[in-house]
Design a protein around this nucleic acid. Structure first.
Length: 271
DNA sequence: ATGTACTTTCCTGATT
DNA sequence: AAATCAGGAAAGTACA
Protein backbone atom coordinates (compact mmCIF):
# COMPACT_ATOMS: atom_id res chain seq x y z
CA UNK A 1 0.00 0.00 0.00
CA UNK A 2 2.12 2.62 -0.73
CA UNK A 3 -0.71 3.84 1.02
CA UNK A 4 -0.45 7.35 1.04
CA UNK A 5 1.88 9.58 -0.35
CA UNK A 6 2.68 9.88 3.17
CA UNK A 7 6.02 10.14 4.37
CA UNK A 8 6.10 12.49 7.10
CA UNK A 9 3.83 11.42 9.74
CA UNK A 10 1.70 14.37 9.86
CA UNK A 11 2.46 17.05 7.46
CA UNK A 12 1.16 15.45 4.38
CA UNK A 13 -1.37 13.27 5.86
CA UNK A 14 -3.69 15.98 6.72
CA UNK A 15 -3.64 17.49 3.39
CA UNK A 16 -3.96 14.45 1.28
CA UNK A 17 -6.97 13.25 3.03
CA UNK A 18 -10.42 14.27 2.42
CA UNK A 19 -13.11 13.02 4.65
CA UNK A 20 -14.98 12.26 1.54
CA UNK A 21 -13.00 9.38 0.38
CA UNK A 22 -15.27 7.11 2.13
CA UNK A 23 -15.83 5.19 -0.98
CA UNK A 24 -12.76 3.38 -1.88
CA UNK A 25 -12.36 4.08 -5.44
CA UNK A 26 -8.80 3.38 -4.86
CA UNK A 27 -7.67 -0.14 -4.94
CA UNK A 28 -6.92 -0.41 -1.38
CA UNK A 29 -4.39 -3.05 -1.48
CA UNK A 30 -1.31 -3.03 -3.42
CA UNK A 31 1.45 -5.16 -2.46
CA UNK A 32 3.47 -4.53 0.48
CA UNK A 33 5.84 -1.95 1.34
CA UNK A 34 7.67 -2.35 -1.80
CA UNK A 35 8.41 0.76 -3.54
CA UNK A 36 8.04 3.64 -1.32
CA UNK A 37 9.66 6.89 -1.66
CA UNK A 38 10.60 9.22 1.01
CA UNK A 39 9.81 12.77 0.67
CA UNK A 40 12.77 13.45 2.78
CA UNK A 41 14.24 14.21 -0.48
CA UNK A 42 17.15 15.57 1.29
CA UNK A 43 20.04 13.36 2.13
CA UNK A 44 20.00 11.75 5.51
CA UNK A 45 23.21 13.51 6.31
CA UNK A 46 21.24 16.70 6.52
CA UNK A 47 18.31 15.48 8.49
CA UNK A 48 17.26 17.18 11.64
CA UNK A 49 16.63 15.23 14.78
CA UNK A 50 13.00 15.31 14.00
CA UNK A 51 13.57 13.80 10.60
CA UNK A 52 15.66 11.10 12.12
CA UNK A 53 12.73 10.15 14.28
CA UNK A 54 10.39 10.26 11.38
CA UNK A 55 12.61 7.88 9.55
CA UNK A 56 12.72 5.60 12.56
CA UNK A 57 8.98 5.61 12.79
CA UNK A 58 8.63 4.89 9.11
CA UNK A 59 10.97 1.96 9.14
CA UNK A 60 9.18 0.52 12.13
CA UNK A 61 5.88 0.97 10.40
CA UNK A 62 7.06 -0.67 7.27
CA UNK A 63 8.12 -3.70 9.17
CA UNK A 64 5.13 -3.65 11.34
CA UNK A 65 7.16 -3.43 14.44
CA UNK A 66 5.65 -1.60 17.28
CA UNK A 67 7.77 1.48 17.43
CA UNK A 68 7.13 1.91 21.08
CA UNK A 69 9.57 -0.89 21.59
CA UNK A 70 12.41 1.07 20.17
CA UNK A 71 14.46 3.26 22.41
CA UNK A 72 14.09 6.50 20.59
CA UNK A 73 16.33 8.19 23.08
CA UNK A 74 19.18 6.25 21.64
CA UNK A 75 18.62 8.11 18.43
CA UNK A 76 18.61 11.54 19.84
CA UNK A 77 20.82 12.84 17.10
CA UNK A 78 20.70 14.54 13.79
CA UNK A 79 21.22 12.99 10.42
CA UNK A 80 24.91 13.65 10.33
CA UNK A 81 25.49 11.74 13.53
CA UNK A 82 23.13 9.03 12.45
CA UNK A 83 25.08 8.48 9.29
CA UNK A 84 28.27 8.05 11.20
CA UNK A 85 27.01 5.18 13.30
CA UNK A 86 28.49 1.81 12.67
CA UNK A 87 26.66 -1.43 12.28
CA UNK A 88 27.58 -2.23 15.85
CA UNK A 89 26.24 1.07 17.03
CA UNK A 90 22.90 0.23 15.54
CA UNK A 91 22.86 -3.10 17.26
CA UNK A 92 23.65 -1.44 20.52
CA UNK A 93 21.04 1.19 20.08
CA UNK A 94 18.25 -0.90 18.72
CA UNK A 95 19.02 -4.51 19.35
CA UNK A 96 17.54 -6.88 16.85
CA UNK A 97 16.12 -4.06 14.84
CA UNK A 98 19.54 -2.58 14.42
CA UNK A 99 20.38 -4.45 11.23
CA UNK A 100 17.20 -3.29 9.62
CA UNK A 101 17.90 0.28 10.50
CA UNK A 102 21.47 -0.02 9.38
CA UNK A 103 20.43 -1.42 6.07
CA UNK A 104 17.90 1.31 5.61
CA UNK A 105 20.22 4.16 6.36
CA UNK A 106 22.94 2.65 4.25
CA UNK A 107 20.72 2.73 1.25
CA UNK A 108 19.59 6.20 1.94
CA UNK A 109 23.09 7.43 2.18
CA UNK A 110 23.70 6.32 -1.33
CA UNK A 111 20.47 6.93 -3.03
CA UNK A 112 18.77 9.68 -1.24
CA UNK A 113 15.66 7.77 -1.88
CA UNK A 114 14.32 4.83 -0.14
CA UNK A 115 13.52 1.58 -1.76
CA UNK A 116 12.42 -0.98 0.60
CA UNK A 117 13.61 -4.20 -0.56
CA UNK A 118 14.54 -5.56 2.71
CA UNK A 119 13.05 -8.91 2.89
CA UNK A 120 9.89 -8.05 4.57
CA UNK A 121 9.49 -11.68 5.14
CA UNK A 122 12.55 -11.79 7.17
CA UNK A 123 11.02 -12.75 10.35
CA UNK A 124 12.28 -10.29 12.79
CA UNK A 125 12.46 -12.29 15.83
CA UNK A 126 11.89 -9.06 17.49
CA UNK A 127 8.73 -8.23 19.28
CA UNK A 128 9.86 -7.77 22.83
CA UNK A 129 6.49 -7.51 24.31
CA UNK A 130 3.84 -9.64 22.80
CA UNK A 131 1.87 -6.53 23.05
CA UNK A 132 -0.14 -7.27 25.98
CA UNK A 133 -3.55 -6.76 27.23
CA UNK A 134 -4.97 -9.12 24.86
CA UNK A 135 -6.34 -12.36 25.73
CA UNK A 136 -9.02 -11.35 27.97
CA UNK A 137 -7.76 -7.95 28.58
CA UNK A 138 -7.14 -8.64 32.14
CA UNK A 139 -3.50 -9.12 32.23
CA UNK A 140 -1.35 -6.32 33.26
CA UNK A 141 -0.05 -4.44 30.46
CA UNK A 142 3.62 -4.89 30.07
CA UNK A 143 3.53 -3.27 26.73
CA UNK A 144 3.90 -0.05 28.44
CA UNK A 145 7.35 0.28 29.63
CA UNK A 146 9.24 0.05 26.50
CA UNK A 147 10.92 3.29 27.11
CA UNK A 148 12.54 3.69 30.40
CA UNK A 149 11.07 6.99 31.22
CA UNK A 150 14.19 8.78 32.13
CA UNK A 151 16.86 7.07 30.23
CA UNK A 152 20.00 8.98 30.13
CA UNK A 153 20.98 8.69 26.55
CA UNK A 154 22.77 5.75 25.30
CA UNK A 155 25.30 5.18 27.96
CA UNK A 156 24.72 2.01 29.82
CA UNK A 157 23.64 -1.06 28.09
CA UNK A 158 21.21 -2.46 30.56
CA UNK A 159 18.38 -1.07 28.58
CA UNK A 160 19.81 -1.85 25.29
CA UNK A 161 20.67 -5.28 26.36
CA UNK A 162 17.03 -5.91 26.76
CA UNK A 163 16.33 -5.26 23.18
CA UNK A 164 18.93 -7.46 21.74
CA UNK A 165 18.63 -10.45 23.89
CA UNK A 166 15.65 -12.02 22.39
CA UNK A 167 15.13 -15.36 23.97
CA UNK A 168 14.08 -18.28 21.95
CA UNK A 169 10.78 -18.75 20.33
CA UNK A 170 9.24 -15.40 20.57
CA UNK A 171 5.79 -14.91 19.29
CA UNK A 172 5.58 -13.75 15.76
CA UNK A 173 3.47 -10.72 15.82
CA UNK A 174 0.75 -9.69 18.04
CA UNK A 175 -2.16 -11.97 17.74
CA UNK A 176 -4.47 -9.29 16.78
CA UNK A 177 -2.23 -6.39 16.45
CA UNK A 178 -2.74 -3.48 18.69
CA UNK A 179 -6.16 -2.34 19.59
CA UNK A 180 -7.16 1.12 18.66
CA UNK A 181 -7.19 2.48 22.17
CA UNK A 182 -3.73 1.06 22.78
CA UNK A 183 -2.50 2.60 19.60
CA UNK A 184 -3.81 5.95 20.74
CA UNK A 185 -2.39 5.47 24.18
CA UNK A 186 1.01 4.62 22.81
CA UNK A 187 1.13 7.74 20.72
CA UNK A 188 0.28 9.74 23.78
CA UNK A 189 2.94 8.01 25.79
CA UNK A 190 5.70 8.52 23.31
CA UNK A 191 6.06 12.17 22.58
CA UNK A 192 9.05 11.37 20.46
CA UNK A 193 6.85 9.76 17.94
CA UNK A 194 3.96 12.06 18.37
CA UNK A 195 4.51 15.03 16.16
CA UNK A 196 1.57 16.95 17.49
CA UNK A 197 -1.05 14.40 16.62
CA UNK A 198 -2.73 14.00 19.97
CA UNK A 199 -2.08 15.78 23.20
CA UNK A 200 -2.91 15.37 26.82
CA UNK A 201 -5.50 17.72 28.04
CA UNK A 202 -5.27 16.51 31.60
CA UNK A 203 -2.56 13.98 32.13
CA UNK A 204 -3.71 12.73 35.50
CA UNK A 205 -7.32 12.45 34.48
CA UNK A 206 -6.48 10.73 31.28
CA UNK A 207 -8.13 13.32 29.11
CA UNK A 208 -6.67 13.90 25.70
CA UNK A 209 -7.47 15.63 22.48
CA UNK A 210 -6.84 14.89 18.84
CA UNK A 211 -4.99 17.69 17.21
CA UNK A 212 -4.73 16.15 13.80
CA UNK A 213 -7.62 13.80 13.56
CA UNK A 214 -7.21 12.76 9.98
CA UNK A 215 -3.50 12.25 10.36
CA UNK A 216 -4.06 9.95 13.30
CA UNK A 217 -6.67 8.10 11.32
CA UNK A 218 -4.24 7.63 8.50
CA UNK A 219 -1.61 6.36 10.83
CA UNK A 220 -4.08 3.94 12.29
CA UNK A 221 -5.07 2.90 8.83
CA UNK A 222 -1.48 2.33 7.96
CA UNK A 223 -1.10 0.11 10.94
CA UNK A 224 -4.13 -1.88 9.97
CA UNK A 225 -3.19 -1.86 6.37
CA UNK A 226 -6.25 0.06 5.47
CA UNK A 227 -5.66 3.06 3.33
CA UNK A 228 -9.20 4.25 3.52
CA UNK A 229 -9.37 4.89 7.21
CA UNK A 230 -10.82 8.22 8.21
CA UNK A 231 -11.40 9.97 11.46
CA UNK A 232 -15.09 9.49 10.92
CA UNK A 233 -14.65 5.76 11.04
CA UNK A 234 -12.00 5.77 13.68
CA UNK A 235 -14.22 7.82 15.92
CA UNK A 236 -17.02 5.31 15.58
CA UNK A 237 -14.71 2.71 17.00
CA UNK A 238 -13.79 5.12 19.75
CA UNK A 239 -17.42 5.54 20.65
CA UNK A 240 -17.84 1.83 21.03
CA UNK A 241 -15.31 2.08 23.83
CA UNK A 242 -17.70 4.07 25.96
CA UNK A 243 -19.85 1.09 26.64
CA UNK A 244 -16.86 -0.99 27.58
CA UNK A 245 -15.56 1.78 29.77
CA UNK A 246 -12.26 1.88 28.05
CA UNK A 247 -13.14 5.47 27.32
CA UNK A 248 -15.39 7.87 29.09
CA UNK A 249 -17.42 10.46 27.39
CA UNK A 250 -16.34 14.05 27.54
CA UNK A 251 -19.19 16.06 26.27
CA UNK A 252 -19.16 19.37 24.72
CA UNK A 253 -15.60 19.17 23.64
CA UNK A 254 -14.84 18.06 20.16
CA UNK A 255 -12.05 15.62 19.57
CA UNK A 256 -11.63 15.12 23.28
CA UNK A 257 -11.73 11.73 24.97
CA UNK A 258 -10.90 10.35 28.35
CA UNK A 259 -9.56 6.99 29.34
CA UNK A 260 -11.92 4.93 31.39
CA UNK A 261 -11.47 2.40 34.13
CA UNK A 262 -10.80 -0.40 31.69
CA UNK A 263 -7.99 1.30 29.88
CA UNK A 264 -4.68 0.13 31.19
CA UNK A 265 -1.26 1.53 31.05
CA UNK A 266 -1.81 5.20 30.53
CA UNK A 267 -1.33 6.45 34.04
CA UNK A 268 2.00 7.81 34.99
CA UNK A 269 1.96 5.74 38.10
CA UNK A 270 1.57 2.63 36.03
CA UNK A 271 4.53 3.39 33.94
C1' DA B 1 -16.18 -24.85 11.38
C1' DT B 2 -18.19 -21.70 14.23
C1' DG B 3 -18.33 -18.13 17.62
C1' DT B 4 -16.51 -13.97 19.54
C1' DA B 5 -14.13 -9.72 20.03
C1' DC B 6 -13.09 -5.74 17.56
C1' DT B 7 -13.43 -3.10 14.51
C1' DT B 8 -14.85 -1.11 9.74
C1' DT B 9 -18.24 0.77 6.77
C1' DC B 10 -22.49 3.22 6.02
C1' DC B 11 -25.98 5.92 7.35
C1' DT B 12 -29.43 9.27 9.38
C1' DG B 13 -29.83 12.86 12.37
C1' DA B 14 -28.24 16.19 15.92
C1' DT B 15 -24.71 19.62 17.53
C1' DT B 16 -21.25 22.88 17.43
C1' DA C 1 -21.46 25.09 5.85
C1' DA C 2 -18.23 21.88 7.49
C1' DA C 3 -16.72 18.96 11.25
C1' DT C 4 -17.97 16.22 14.85
C1' DC C 5 -20.77 13.48 17.65
C1' DA C 6 -24.23 9.59 18.23
C1' DG C 7 -25.42 5.12 17.65
C1' DG C 8 -27.90 1.42 14.95
C1' DA C 9 -27.10 -2.08 11.64
C1' DA C 10 -24.50 -5.10 9.14
C1' DA C 11 -20.10 -6.83 7.15
C1' DG C 12 -15.29 -8.03 7.71
C1' DT C 13 -11.22 -10.13 10.14
C1' DA C 14 -8.47 -12.73 13.28
C1' DC C 15 -8.37 -15.91 16.52
C1' DA C 16 -9.75 -19.47 19.81
Amino acid sequence: MSITPSTTLDSQLTTTWGPNNSYPDVPMVMSGYTSRLWSHDSQPQFWSKFQVWEWLQQVMDMHQIDASNIPFQNFDMDGHQLCSLSYQDFILAAGSVGPILFHSISELKWSGQYHVELDLKQELDFCPFPDASYPSGEIHDPSIHPLPSVASPISSSPDIKRYSSRPHQVKKHNPRGTHLWEFIRDILLNPERNPGLIKWEDRTEGIFRFLKSEAVAQLWGKKKNNSSMTYEKLSRAMRYYYKREILERVDGRRLVYKFGRNARGWKESEK
